[in-house]
Design a protein around this nucleic acid. Structure first.
Lengths: 171, 171
DNA sequence: AACACGGCTGCGAAATCCGTAGGTCTCGGT
DNA sequence: ACCGAGACCTACGGATTTCGCAGCCGTGTT
């Protein structure tokens, strides 16, 4: 049937401290719960409990804790194209000075979906979601390049999205 | 209070065909429903109904349809770091020949979270999620560079994730 | 030993979900 | 003009789920 996760109780309870990097530690059962919710964010607690070998209430408490801790969130994700956003691009940014401040400024823009500081020939990568070419042009040229400290940018306009998963932790 | 979406009934019902690009058309009410679920994927239908001005059953039917059509999915998303993936990178790929086939090959790799074909100095951008440096190195050098048609790659190792939203359609 | 703490179970009440029947409006065919 | 099909909504009762809480059990501390 569905692979039960049998976890010795005592082992579970020992594992509920923080690991050294300050992140909450996740045991096998919590990972299994996350996997269930990655398949269907609305799956009932009782069904999850049956799959991972826990009571409904226990699953509910764990899920609530994972949400509170910010380990996961349960959200609707959409295909941008069907929601009316026809132009997307990844923008590589070269910056000088306070790079993190620039990353914060990018994060404040609503058209910017994703910001990450990187090592390599770009200091920052930012994903932009726009309604049309004019909108995209405006964001890149007028707003991003105008930020103080931005030395140069390079844009990669999306032609075709091939894969997009939310399956972290499910391998 | 919370901004009600008042939609003239007749206008709604007219709007439920396919738009010319084959994508299901979304009216204001469906967008409002999506917004609600982007804030909390488990929000009860009745609460959503109150917010968007529809009955519980109507919301339920719309949500089901949006899921069936693939317009959205309700899933748990996690912070990769807390789930044990410590190294991430964006890889830009230059390719020759059948670029789409290469993108497909990348998509088949479980470590590859995100693949997009682009215009610009890279043909493909791929996001890699790995457990450690060895794993990352292995994926990039042994598996990606080994693909026939891959001319060159450039990697951007993630230093700090600054923003990651799932708020498409919410502006 | 006693106690605090974290985590699990069990249970009853409240809230939610689900299927379905029935109404309205629009469009298309006869 | 009329009728039927289809899309979408509301209403409603029964099944299911969620929720809060009391109680229990290991573990670690004093």
């Amino acid at each position: 049937m569905h692979s039960e996760v049998v976890a010795s109780r005592s082992a579970d309870q020992r594992d509920s401290r923080e690991s050294r990097n300050g992140n909450p530690h996740l045991d096998a059962v919590s990972l299994a719960i996350i996997e269930q919710l990655q398949q269907d964010g609305r799956r009932p607690y009782a069904a999850i409990g049956k799959a991972v070998g826990l009571s409904e209430a226990a699953v509910r408490q764990r899920v609530q804790k994972l949400l509170d801790q910010g380990v996961m969130q349960i959200v609707a994700v959409t295909d941008p194209l069907t929601v009316g956003f026809r132009r997307q691009a990844m923008v590589g940014v070269n910056a000088e000075g306070d790079v993190e401040a620039i990353a914060d400024a990018l994060s404040d823009m609503s058209e910017v979906e994703y910001v990450v500081m990187t090592a390599g020939s770009f200091d920052i990568l930012a994903e932009i979601v726009c309604e049309d070419d004019d909108h995209l042009l405006d964001v890149i040229n007028k707003r991003i390049r105008a930020l103080p400290g931005v030395r140069s940018t390079e844009s990669f306009v999306y032609l075709k999205l091939k894969k997009q998963t939310y399956m972290w932790g499910t391998r």
